[in-house]
Write a protein that binds this DNA or RNA. Structure first.
Length: 939
RNA sequence: GCGGGGAUAAUCAAGUCUGGUCCACGAUGCUGGACUUAGGAUCCAGUGCAUAGCGCCGCGAGGGUUCGAAGCCCUCUCCCCGCACCA
C-alpha cells in the first residue's frame, strides 16, 4: 500500500460523511446510559482562538471516547450572542447589532466545523433568537410572581465606559470585568434576582459536585456564610434602631462606640442642621471619592468622625457615641458595627486615635488581668467574661450562645446567619440584551407583560450613538398599553444581564424545540445534569454561580427535578507563549502592528532590545493575549497541517488542566508524530509469520497495557498521558512490522491502535479504518477491552529485565572499542542465586544489619561454598533492596526467556547473542550475574 | 493578612495521593552517525560525572523518619492564583 496523508481532503470527506449519516444526532433512549458533555458556549467574537480550540478539543475528545464506550452522548454547541461588543460595533461602524452578531456566529461556527467537532448541531442555541430570549422573559415573570425578582433603589456599581450598571460578581477588584474601567457607586432603581434566598442551598450543593477544590472554595468565600448574632441598638432621641450583626456578641459589654458606613443615609439625617454637618459633608465626599478598592485596602488609614448621636446598649443600657467610619461596608450586615476596642484590633486603633474609652470585658485564662488604659493592642483570644453583668465569669465561647439567647428573650435580636453574597443585579442600560418584560403604568404601577404577549421584542428602529439606552429613543418600543387597565403606559427600557442567558442554555439543549415551556421536563430529567462541563476558571463565580441559582429556581417552579447543573467541572489551563520581557522595565514588551502592517511593538527583534530603555530583553513564558499581541491563530496550523494535527498538538502539549506552552517547533514535531503513525499503519509488512514467537508475547503485553493505561487516562480526561502511551506503543508497533509479524496479532494491534487515537484525531482514524478494510465509522466503533492476564506484574518484570539487559549491553558498546568484538555472551545467574536473593532480600527488608545477613548466609551449607562472592552480593542487596527482584521462577525459565528472545537481542545489539548458564560459562565475570540481571560479555 | 496551588535536568514537563528497576516518562533543543537528486524528511545513538556496565551525584534550601525518600514529617526561601478592614 502506498497511502499519502492528505489531511485537508480526508478531513472534509469525513466531516461530510458524518453529517450525511447524522452520526452525532442523539435522542433520548431509556435503554442506554446517557452522558452529557458540554463546553461553556462562546461569545461569538469573530474567529475561533487557541483557547476555544483547546476547550472544544478536550470536550470533543472526551465525548467521542464516551460514545465509543457505549454511552448515549449529548454534545451540543451554541452561542452566547447578546452583549456589548455588538452594540459598540453599531455605534462605531453603524452595523446593526443583529447583522454583526450573525456574521460572527457564522464565522466561528465555520471554524468549529472545520475542526470536526461532533456536535449535534440541530440543538444549537443562540441567545439572540426570539424563541430563546422569550423564555428569559417568561422566567423573569415567574420569578416576579414568586417574589424572586424585584425592583429596588440601592447603591449599585456603575461602569462609566459601558454606561451601565454591573452586578457585584462583575466587579473585579474595583474594576469592570469586561472593560477594566474603575467602577463608581451610584444610587439607582434597578431589578434584582433574590439569589440570597438560595444562599444556603448554593453553599450546601457544593458538597455534591466534582469540581476543582479551588472553584468550590471561591464560591464558598463569595457566598460568605457567617454565623453570629444581631443586636438592636436604639438610637437615642429617635425611633431608629441599629440592628447590627456581630460574631462576637460575647464582647457586647465592652462596646464603647458604634461605627456607621459613611454613606449610610441616617448619618446625613442626623447631622442635618447641627455643627457636625459641614465636617460630615467633607468626610463623606472624601470617602466616596476613593474608589472601592483603594478604600478597602488594608493600609488605608482608618478615619471617622462623631455624628452627635448616641446609641443604647441593649444589654446594659449604656449610652455610647455613634461615629461614621471609612472602613465600614454599607452593603454588609446593617452597614453599622458595634465597636469593642479592647477585643478588636481595628476598633482599638480607631479608639486610640479618637480617644474613646477602652473597656476590657474578657480576661485571659492564664489569670493575668488586662487593664483597658494600659493595653497596647486588642486582646482577641478566648478568655473569661468580666464586667459583663450576669454573664461575668462565663467562658466567652459558651457566652456567645447565652447572650444571643438572652437578646432573643428580650426581643432585641438573637442568633443570625449573615451572608456576604448580595442579590443579583440584572438590569443593564443597554439595547443588545433581553428586554425586561415590565410595564410602568401611571394608574396601576409596575405591571408584568402578559405571558401571551411574549416575547417583548427588541425594536428595529433603535438609533445608536446618542446618550443613554437606545431603547429610550424608540417610540415603537416605549409606547405600550397597560396590560392591566389598558391605559397609556411605558415599557421598562433596561435589558437583562447576559449572564441570565447563560444561566439555563444547558437545559435548553435537552429540548431545543420546546414551544410551550423553556424546556420539556422529561427531556431535562433524562439528559441533565451536565456530566462533564469544561471551561475557563474566569467563570468560577460569575456564570457558575448564576447557573446553579437558575437551576434551583427552575426546579422550584416545577420545570425539572435537577438540583445541580454541572456534576463535574474541568477548568482548562491557560495557553502561554514565549515572549520578550525586559528585566530593566520589569514588564513584557507588547508586539503590535499599525493598520498598514508596520511594526509598532515595544521591542526591536533584530537587535533584541527594549524600545523603552534600550537594554537587551530576555524571553519568558506569557499568557497568550491580545494586549501582548502574542496570539497565534489556529487557522494557520489547520491550513498547514490539518485539523487533526491542531487537535493532536493541543491535547499532547499539556494535560487539560495545566498551562500549555505553545511553540512552533512543538507543533511541527507533533505533525511528524502523526505522520509516523500514519505510515506505520498504512505500510503493510512484506511477509508474515505463521508460528507465534516470544516477541508476540511482548506485543500482547504492551498492547493490553496501552489499552488499560489509555482507558484509565481518558476516563480522568488526562489526555496527554493517554497520548504518550499511544505514541510509545506506535513505536513498538513500527518495530514489529520489521520483525515479520504474526498476521492475526498484527491486525489486532493495528485495529486497536487506530481506535485508541480516534477520539483525538478522528479524521485520520476514519481514513485508516477504511484503508484497513473495516466497515462503518471508527467514531461509532466499540472501545476495546484488555486482558488483565496478559499484563501481570510478573510478565512486566520479564520484559523489564530484557529492556535492562539491552540498555546495559548498549552502554558497554558505547564505551568500549568494538574492534574485534563479534559476539555477546549472556550469562544467566546460577540456580542457587534465585533462592539466595529471595531469602536475603526478605532479611534486608526486616531490617537485619549487615553482619547478621552475612552470618545467616554463611550458615546455609548450600551457599557457604560461594563465600568469597557472597559479601559482594549482600552489599548490593543491602544498599538498595528495592532494586533487586527475582523475575523468573527458575534459572531454566530465565535461560529460556532470553534464548527465545535472542533474535530480538541480535537485532537491537547488532551482533549475535549467546545465552549460557553461569554453571556452563567460563569467563570469570560470570559471578556478576544475578537473577534477572545476567552478566554480559562482549567477545 | 487569610485561603489555595506550585518549585523536577538547557527548556516545557510526568512522577508526589499509595516510598522500592526513578541510572526521573515524554517532548523540544543540542551533538554525533546512517541514509539521501540535502529535508523543519526518515532512522539510530548520545545529551550530570564516571565506566566492560550493574557506581556516584541529582528533583527549591536545611533537617528528620526508613534497610530504602523526588515522594512521608518538620523548618525555611521563593513564585503563581483567589479573597481582601465582612464586624
Amino acid at each position: 500500500m502506498n497511502h499519502v496523508y492528505h489531511p485537508q481532503e480526508i478531513e472534509m470527506k469525513w466531516q461530510e460523511r458524518w453529517a450525511k449519516d447524522k452520526i452525532f444526532e442523539v435522542e433520548k433512549d431509556s435503554k442506554k446510559s446517557k452522558f452529557y458533555v458540554l463546553e461553556m458556549y462562546p461569545y461569538p467574537s469573530g474567529h475561533m482562538h487557541m483557547g476555544h480550540l483547546r476547550n472544544y478539543t478536550i470536550g470533543d475528545t472526551f465525548a467521542r471516547y464516551k460514545r465509543m464506550k457505549g454511552f448515549n452522548v449529548l454534545y451540543p454547541m451554541g452561542y452566547d450572542s447578546f452583549g456589548l461588543p455588538a452594540e459598540i460595533a453599531a455605534i462605531k461602524k453603524g452595523t446593526p447589532p443583529e447583522e454583526y452578531t450573525r456574521a460572527n456566529i457564522a464565522s466561528i461556527k465555520a471554524d468549529q466545523q472545520r475542526i470536526g467537532f461532533g456536535y449535534d448541531w440541530r440543538r444549537e442555541v443562540s441567545s439572540i433568537e426570539e424563541k430563546y430570549y422569550k423564555w428569559n422573559q417568561w422566567m423573569f415573570i415567574k420569578m416576579y410572581e414568586k417574589g424572586l425578582a424585584y425592583r429596588k433603589e440601592s447603591l449599585v456599581n456603575w461602569c462609566p465606559k459601558c454606561t451601565s450598571v454591573l452586578a457585584n460578581e462583575q466587579v473585579i477588584t474595583g474594576k469592570c470585568w469586561r472593560c477594566n474601567s474603575t467602577v463608581e457607586p451610584k444610587f439607582l432603581s434597578q431589578w434584582f434576582f433574590k439569589i440570597r434566598d438560595y444562599a444556603d442551598e448554593l453553599l450546601a450543593g457544593l458538597d455534591n459536585v466534582e469540581w476543582p477544590q479551588k472553584v468550590k472554595i471561591m464560591q464558598r468565600n463569595w457566598i460568605g456564610r457567617s454565623e453570629g448574632t444581631t443586636a438592636d441598638f436604639h438610637v437615642e432621641g429617635t425611633d431608629q434602631v441599629l440592628s447590627i450583626f456581630t460574631t462576637r456578641i460575647d464582647t457586647v459589654f465592652g462596646v464603647t462606640f458604634m461605627t456607621m458606613a459613611a454613606e449610610h443615609p441616617w448619618c446625613k439625617d442626623w447631622v442635618k442642621g447641627t455643627k457636625y454637618e459641614k465636617l460630615y459633608e467633607e468626610f463623606h465626599n472624601e470617602v466616596m471619592q476613593l474608589d472601592r478598592y483603594e478604600r478597602m485596602s488594608e493600609d488605608a488609614e482608618k478615619k471617622g468622625m462623631f455624628l452627635g448621636k448616641y446609641a443604647i446598649n441593649p444589654l446594659n443600657g449604656e449610652k455610647i457615641p455613634i461615629y461614621a467610619g471609612n472602613f465600614v461596608i454599607y452593603g454588609y450586615g446593617a452597614g453599622a458595627v458595634m465597636a469593642v476596642p479592647a477585643h478588636d484590633q481595628r476598633d482599638f486603633e480607631f479608639a486610640k486615635k479618637y480617644e474613646i474609652p477602652i473597656k476590657v470585658v474578657i480576661q485571659p485564662f492564664d489569670g493575668f488581668t488586662l487593664d483597658g488604659d494600659k493595653i497596647s493592642r486588642a486582646f482577641v483570644e478566648d478568655g473569661v467574661l468580666h464586667d459583663s453583668g450576669d454573664f461575668s465569669g462565663m467562658e466567652n465561647r459558651p457566652a456567645i450562645q447565652a447572650i444571643a439567647n438572652k437578646l432573643e428573650e428580650l426581643g432585641k435580636g438573637g442568633p443570625t446567619i449573615n451572608y456576604k453574597i448580595r442579590d443579583w443585579l440584572i438590569s443593564r442600560q443597554r439595547y443588545w440584551g433581553t428586554p425586561i418584560p415590565m410595564i410602568y403604568c401611571e394608574k396601576c404601577g409596575i405591571v408584568p407583560e402578559k405571558i401571551e404577549n411574549l416575547p417583548v421584542q427588541l425594536p428595529d428602529d433603535a438609533v445608536f450613538g446618542k446618550s443613554g439606552n437606545p431603547l429610550e429613543h424608540s417610540e415603537k418600543f416605549m409606547h405600550v398599553n397597560c396590560p392591566s387597565c389598558g391605559g397609556t403606559a411605558r415599557r421598562e427600557t433596561d435589558t437583562m444581564d447576559t449572564f441570565v442567558d447563560s444561566s439555563w442554555y444547558f437545559l435548553r439543549y435537552a429540548s431545543p424545540f420546546s414551544e410551550d415551556l423553556p424546556f420539556v421536563k422529561d427531556d431535562v430529567d433524562y439528559w441533565a445534569p451536565v456530566d462533564q462541563y469544561i471551561g475557563g476558571i474566569e467563570h468560577a463565580i460569575l456564570h457558575l454561580l448564576y447557573a446553579r441559582f437558575f437551576t434551583k429556581v427552575s426546579r422550584d417552579l416545577g420545570l425539572h427535578s435537577i438540583d445541580e447543573p454541572f456534576r463535574a467541572l474541568l477548568t482548562q489551563g491557560m495557553i502561554n507563549m514565549i515572549h520578550p520581557y525586559c528585566e530593566h522595565c520589569e514588564k513584557f514588551l507588547p508586539a503590535a502592528h499599525d493598520k498598514d502592517g508596520n511594526w509598532e511593538g515595544d521591542y526591536d527583534s533584530e537587535k533584541g532590545t527594549c524600545n523603552t530603555c534600550g537594554n537587551t530583553y530576555i524571553t519568558k513564558s506569557a499568557k497568550m493575549s491580545k494586549s501582548l499581541g502574542n496570539t497565534v491563530s489556529p487557522g494557520g496550523i489547520i491550513e498547514q497541517f490539518g485539523a487533526d494535527t491542531a487537535r493532536f498538538f493541543i491535547m499532547h502539549g499539556a494535560n487539560p488542566e495545566k498551562e500549555l506552552e505553545w511553540s512552533d517547533s512543538g507543533c511541527y514535531a507533533d505533525n511528524k508524530v502523526l505522520l509516523k503513525i500514519w505510515y506505520a499503519l498504512t505500510e503493510e509488512p512484506s511477509q508474515y509469520r505463521n508460528e507465534p514467537d516470544s516477541y508476540d508475547e511482548f506485543i500482547q503485553f504492551r498492547l493490553n497495557r496501552m489499552i488499560k493505561v489509555v482507558s484509565e487516562n481518558y476516563d480522568k480526561i488526562i489526555i496527554r498521558d493517554a497520548l504518550n502511551e499511544i505514541v510509545a506503543f506506535a513505536d513498538i508497533f513500527r518495530e514489529y512490522l520489521t520483525m515479520v509479524p504474526l498476521k492475526s496479532l498484527y491486525n489486532e494491534a493495528r485495529e486497536k491502535l487506530i481506535l485508541m487515537l480516534a477520539p483525538v484525531v478522528p479524521h485520520m482514524c476514519e481514513e485508516l479504518w477504511q484503508i484497513t478494510e473495516h466497515k462503518g465509522f471508527s467514531t461509532l466503533a466499540s472501545w476495546p477491552s484488555y486482558d488483565t492476564a496478559l499484563i501481570t506484574p510478573e510478565i512486566e518484570r520479564h520484559w523489564l529485565s530484557l529492556d535492562n539487559l539491552i540498555n546495559d549491553a548498549k552502554n558497554i558498546q558505547n564505551i568500549i572499542d568494538l574492534e574485534g568484538i563479534n559476539e555477546i555472551q549472556i550469562i544467566v545467574a546460577a540456580d542457587w542465586k534465585n533462592g539466595f536473593v529471595t531469602e536475603m532480600l526478605g532479611q534486608v527488608v526486616e531490617g537485619n544489619p549487615f553482619g547478621t545477613l552475612m552470618k545467616s548466609a554463611m550458615a546455609n551449607p548450600d551457599w557457604k561454598q560461594y563465600g568469597k562472592n557472597i559479601k559482594g552480593y549482600l552489599q548490593k542487596l543491602a544498599k538498595n533492596p528495592g532494586k533487586y527482584t527475582v523475575p523468573f521462577s527458575t534459572q531454566q525459565a530465565e535461560v529460556d526467556f532470553f534464548l527465545s528472545n535472542s533474535d530480538l537481542l541480535k537485532k537491537e545489539l547488532g551482533m549475535p547473542v549467546l545465552v549460557v548458564s553461569e554453571e556452563d560459562a567460563q569467563n570469570k565475570k560470570k559471578s556478576q550475574a544475578l537473577p534477572g540481571k545476567p552478566a554480559i560479555i562482549l567477545q
